[in-house]
Design a protein around this nucleic acid. Structure first.
Lengths: 132, 132
DNA sequence: GTATACCTTCAAGTCAACTTGAAGGTCAAG
DNA sequence: CTTGACCTTCAAGTTGACTTGAAGGTATAC
C-alpha cells in the first residue's frame, strides 16, 4: 500500500504520515524498488490508533511512548491508564480555566448592555473592559 | 518612566512591552536623549488594559483593533461588545469540545479498570484505546 | 510520447505570544 | 574607575502538529 492510499484510508494527509515517521511515531516502512513507501496493513491500525488517541487528548509524544512499550513487548496497559488519568486532570484544569474566562466574559457582556456608549469617559480606553 | 518601571508596575516583562510595540499593540513612546524608552502615565493604563482584555480571552490582534478605534476618536463600545459576544461563542465551543474529550477519557478510564492486562490481545496495540 | 497523478527529500513556514541570547551602550553608586 | 543594574537592537528559539514549496523521479493511461 502506498502512502496516498494509507492516507485516504485512515483520513489523514500523506504529509502527516511522513511527519509521524520523521518524529518517530511510526516506524519507517518498506520501500518499493523505485523508492516509494510501501505499507502493510498493520500501518493502518497504527494510524487509526494515533487518531483515536489524539481524539482522547494524548499528544504524539505520549502516543509514541505507548508504541515504544508495545514494540518492546511490554503491555502498555498500566502506562496508558496513567496517561489517561493525567490527561483527565489536565482537561479538567483547562475546563476550569475556560469556565472562569466565560464567567468574566459574561460579566463584561452584561456591563456592555448596561453601559451607555454616550457616557464613555474620554480618558479611559473602554469602559466595558477596565482593569479592576 | 523607563521600560523596567512600567513593566514591574503593570506586572509584565520588559520584553513583552517591546514586543507589544513591535507588533503595533502599543505606540512607540518618546525616547530619552540616550535612547531609552520614556513612557508617560497613559502607557500604564494601556498595558493594564491589555492584561484585562487578555484575561477576558481577547487576542492581541483584537486588543489592537480596540486601540485603533479609540485612537481614531471613535468609541469602541459596540465593537468591544461584538468581540465579547464572539469570544463567548468561541469559549463555549472550546468548552464543549473539551467536555467531549473528558467524556471520552472517562470512558477509557473505566475500560482500563475493567480490562485485565493479562488478557491483552497480542495483535492489538492497546485494548484500552482502540479505534471504533 | 505526453499528460497527469502520484511519489521522493529537504527546508522553511504557520499560529500566538512571547522569551532568550548576543553584543553592546548608559547611568548611578562607591 | 569600576561594578552592576538597566537599557538598546536584532535574530532566533519556544511549543505542537503539521503544511507548503521547490525541484525532481515514477507509474499509468491514452
Amino acid at each position: 500500500m502506498r502512502i496516498g492510499e494509507l492516507a485516504s484510508e485512515s483520513g489523514v494527509q500523506s504529509s502527516a504520515i511522513r511527519y509521524y515517521e520523521a518524529i518517530g511515531v511510526l516506524a519507517p516502512p518498506a520501500r518499493t524498488p523505485s523508492g516509494y513507501r510501501d505499507y502493510d496493513s498493520s500501518a493502518s491500525t497504527r494510524v487509526q490508533f494515533v487518531k483515536a488517541a489524539q481524539q482522547a487528548g494524548l499528544t504524539l509524544t505520549e502516543i509514541t511512548s505507548i508504541f515504544n512499550l508495545r514494540d518492546e513487548g511490554s503491555q502498555p496497559c498500566r502506562h496508558v491508564a496513567d496517561l489517561i488519568d493525567r490527561k483527565l486532570g489536565q482537561i479538567n484544569d483547562r475546563i476550569t480555566a475556560l469556565s472562569q474566562t466565560r464567567q468574566e466574559l459574561k460579566r463584561l457582556a452584561k456591563r456592555a448592555e448596561r453601559l451607555d456608549p454616550e457616557h464613555c469617559p474620554p480618558n479611559s480606553i473602554c469602559q466595558i473592559i477596565e482593569p479592576n
